[in-house]
Structure formats: structure tokens, C-alpha cells
Design a binder for these strands. Structure first.
Lengths: 190, 190
DNA sequence: ATACAAAACTAACGTTTGTTAGTTAAATCT
DNA sequence: AGATTTAACTAACAAACGTTAGTTTTGTAT
């Protein structure tokens, strides 16, 4: 647990506010007030509001991408791969709770190269997941329903976890993983 | 198909832009440009930006509330109730595609009485759904897992449908309802 | 005590924001 | 045709926006 730099503290506070109100509705003065300083002081540590959004979203997106690629290229069975994806999602979400708000709702406000870069990661991620599901259907381990519906059904739940997890921290990590995995596997299993 | 009033056209355009960029990121000048007029002209038809958001969100929320109450109070079996809720969600989503963006992401920007009113409807909706699920678990028709996880899993998928449906309009309504219902019932069934 | 770096401050900038006031053009009704 | 309604316009406002420049305070190391 190294002590965070001031920049990291700013980004963390920003993530929290972005989650509550959305990127566009949070002003630099709001963010400054949250930290007990003036808006201009923020610029000793960060170069723009956009930089904050970018560093929030891109780092988490890369974490998802790396994890998914690893699973996709592994030698696991199809259902084991799905299970790993679920665990990946839970882990990344729990570790980056607030940032996931921006990733899900404010990615369209990314600027410059960051936007296509993000979109490409996101598409790649979905495509990998789609392939896993299609393979499962072909080999009979996953139900023969429309693959888009199966994909979107699982992905929706995973992507919305950030909204629910913080409110139900009575649930321990063990139960969360076990019950979520059971529920989602049941939804797609043949 | 009655011809829409100018006000309705404005609200419809607003819904589309709010969906794409979020309420706070859309300016009255953006909205005016979309309609081919000047920003000031909007105020001949609407009284404020907030009014637009409010009418978008509240009307759809009420539609959900009415539908859910009807199902909740019906004599159907638990699983039939869940099925009806799924159908309700699909119907309302397809009919109000764009407005669902605001409902899901911008409800916190509601002002005055509209905010607590919305929150109350939303809580009531979730509570009704929770009761249905708990009853199902008690009577053995629904899997004995954490009810919060079952609830959030199904609700997440339903609430995110507005993001997927427009992109996959190759899928016909018949298949959509059938496959979604099958998938989600499988996820919670005992 | 002095020097240096980190992090705050005040003041201000040019834009953009939602909105109002007052006026004009087009469409509909009598 | 004249009157009325509908819906557009131009011009402008005060407030809030992200950001810059220059300065002062605070904490740490010599």
C-alpha cells in the first residue's frame, strides 16, 4: 500500500464524482471542492479534464483486454472460459469500482486517438466473447439460441455489476462469485 | 398515427441526442441544430431543458410502474409473472427506445419533486420484482441462490436492452422475446 | 537557517451555457 | 381579405465553464 500521489488522489475523487453525476455534469470546481482546494490548483497535477477521463477509462479497458486475451488463447473448455471471463469481470470491477462508471457511460467523451483505441478494444473484447459462445453452441455445450442474445445477456449483467456491488457489500466475495457464476452459466448452458 | 406536435418532435430529437451523448453534454444549441432551428426558438414549445428530461423519464417510468403492478397483483404463477415482466420490459423498451437512455443514465439530473418521485417508482418496481423472486425461492420454483444476485442479474439484462436492440434490428420481435425469455428464465429457474 | 520542490492560492481570460425579450414570417381560420 | 395562431427569427443577458499566469504557502532536505 504505497501512499498515493496527489495526481492519483485527484483521479480517484474524479472517478467517484463521474460515477455519481456523469463526466459532463461534473465541473472542475466540483472536483476541486471535493478535494478541499481551488479549481486552478488541480492544474498543478493534471493537464486537463479530459486527461482524467482518459486515464480512468483506458487503464481499466486495457486490464479487461489483457485478461480476455489470456482466457481466449488458453486451453480451457468453453464453459471454463466463460467462467473465467465472469471471474475476470468481477475482479476488475471490484478493484476499480468507480472507474467503471466512466467506462460504461462516458467513453463517448474520449477525445483524439483515445476514442478509436477504446472502441477497438471494446469490439475486440466482444468479438472474443462472441467466438467463445459460438464455439460452445457448435460443440453443444451452450444452448442453441441466438448467440447475440446470449452474449448481450451475460455481458449486460457483468457490465452493470459496478452499480450493484457497492450497495450490497454485505455479500462476501465468495458468495458473489459463486452465485453469479452459477446464475450466468445456467442462462447459457445447453 | 396522428401527426406529432412540434413539442413532441423536439422531445423526440432530444431523446435521441441524450442517448448518444448524455443529458448534460447536449446543449440547447445542439438540439436546435438537430431540428434545423435556432436555440431560442425551442422556448416557444418547451419551458426548459429540464422539462424535456422530466417528460422523457417520468412517462416511461410510469409505464413500467403500471405494468409491474398489474403483473404483481395478478393470479399468475411465479414463473409466469417473471415471464410477463420480461415481456413488459421488451415492449416498453422497443416502444421508447431513445427515452430509455435518459431513464437509465440521467435520472439523477431530475429536479424538484420529479427526482424523489422517480426514485420511489424505481424502488417500488425493484421491491415488487424482489418479492416475486423470493416467493419463487420459497416455493421451490426458483433456484436457491442469493435473491439479490438473481434480481440484479435479470434486471441488468432487461435494463440494458435499449443499448442492444437498435443495433441488432435484424432480430425479429418473435425471436427476441422467445430467446430472451428462455435465457433469463434458465438463469433463475430451480 | 537556507534552498528547493510540491502544492496551494488569487485573479482573470475567452467561451459556452440556458434562457429572456421583442420581432417577423408563415400557416390556418373566419 | 383580415385576423389569429403557430413557429420561426435576432440580439442579448448573466452565470458557469475549462483553463492560464503569476504568486504565495507548506513541507522536506541540506
Amino acid at each position: 500500500m504505497k501512499t498515493p500521489t496527489r495526481k492519483e488522489e485527484i483521479i480517484k475523487s474524479a472517478a467517484k464524482l463521474f460515477l455519481e453525476r456523469g463526466y459532463s455534469a461534473v465541473t472542475m470546481r466540483d472536483l476541486a471542492k471535493e478535494l478541499g482546494i481551488k479549481a486552478a490548483s488541480l492544474y498543478n497535477h493534471i493537464s486537463s479534464k479530459h486527461e482524467i477521463l482518459e486515464s480512468l477509462i483506458i487503464s481499466v479497458a486495457e486490464e479487461f483486454t489483457v485478461g480476455m486475451n489470456q482466457i481466449f488463447l488458453s486451453e480451457l473448455s468453453t464453459l471454463e472460459k466463460v467462467e473465467q471471463v465472469i471471474h475476470l469481470h468481477i475482479d476488475v470491477t471490484v478493484k476499480n469500482q468507480d472507474a467503471l462508471g466512466s467506462l460504461n457511460n462516458d467513453w463517448m467523451h474520449l477525445e483524439g486517438k483515445a476514442l478509436p483505441y477504446f472502441e477497438q478494444m471494446r469490439n475486440q473484447y466482444e468479438e472474443n466473447f462472441r467466438q467463445i459462445i459460438k464455439t460452445g453452441i457448435a460443440e453443444g455445450s451452450i444452448a442453441a439460441r441466438d448467440p447475440e442474445i446470449l452474449l448481450f445477456s451475460v455481458l449486460s449483467t457483468l457490465r452493470t455489476l459496478y452499480l450493484w456491488y457497492p450497495k450490497k457489500n454485505s455479500i462476501d466475495m465468495q458468495t458473489l462469485k459463486a452465485d453469479m457464476t452459477a446464475t450466468m452459466l445456467a442462462s447459457i448452458r445447453a
